[in-house]
């Protein structure tokens, strides 16, 4: 793991106001990305605010792989400059996240990848991506039986046989 790397502001090309960020993934890949793109992430925005307060810019260490990080960056690049209601901290949260066709194609990946993306999106506080992933995972289990859901989600049945047979004891909700 690298120690905190200082990025000198002078290395940033003066293209408009968009500065560069250095993101470091858990597999130690250094990815440079425009700050503008990542502003959808509340986590990154807060980090950047922190930089401004201390006038020091650091690499941001992220606890997931570059593969996942690239996927998230792809998402953020696609919606660069777009207003998405779910990501607006001031707007009332929508009842359900809207279906976006591009997201559906983008998230047409296996369940492990989906879980990794949603975890990353949660960490980075990108609500719109969390919503779209949640919908994609829900689509996989919708209408399935409990047994099929266990299979799909990779969950083990840890109820005791007694609990299984008397749902009242386990289902108090």
């Amino acid at each position: 793991m690298p120690t905190i790397v200082s990025v000198d502001d002078s290395t940033v090309p003066g293209e408009g106001s968009s500065r560069l960020l250095l993101l470091v993934s858990s597999d130690n890949k250094h990815i440079v990305v425009e700050e503008d793109i990542m502003s959808r992430s509340r986590f990154i925005s807060k980090q950047v605010e922190g930089f401004e307060a201390t006038s020091q810019r650091h690499a941001i260490l992220l606890p997931f792989s570059s593969f996942v990080l690239n996927k998230v960056i792809e998402y953020c690049s696609h919606y660069r400059g777009y207003y998405l209601l779910e990501d607006d901290p001031d707007a009332a949260p929508p009842g359900r996240s809207p279906v976006r066709e591009w997201d559906q194609e983008f998230l047409d990946v296996d369940r492990n990848m989906l879980l990794r993306i949603i975890k990353a999106a949660h960490y980075l506080e990108i609500k719109s991506l969390v919503g779209s992933c949640a919908r994609a995972i829900a689509d996989m289990i919708r209408g399935k039986t409990t047994e099929e859901m266990r299979e799909i989600l990779g969950v083990e049945n840890d109820f005791t046989p007694e609990e299984e047979h008397s749902p009242s004891s386990k289902c108090t909700g």
Binding site: R96, S97, I118, C133, A134, R135, I137, A138, I141, R142, G143, K144, T145, T146, M149, R150, L153, V155, E156, N157, D158, F159, P167, K170, C171, G173
Partner: peptide, 17 residues
């Protein structure tokens, strides 16, 4: 994730573990 499901699917899911 569960919040996007209907009541029946939520119940089925809650019976998994």
């Amino acid at each position: 994730i569960l919040g996007t499901l209907n009541g029946k699917d939520i119940l089925a899911c809650s019976a998994t573990c």
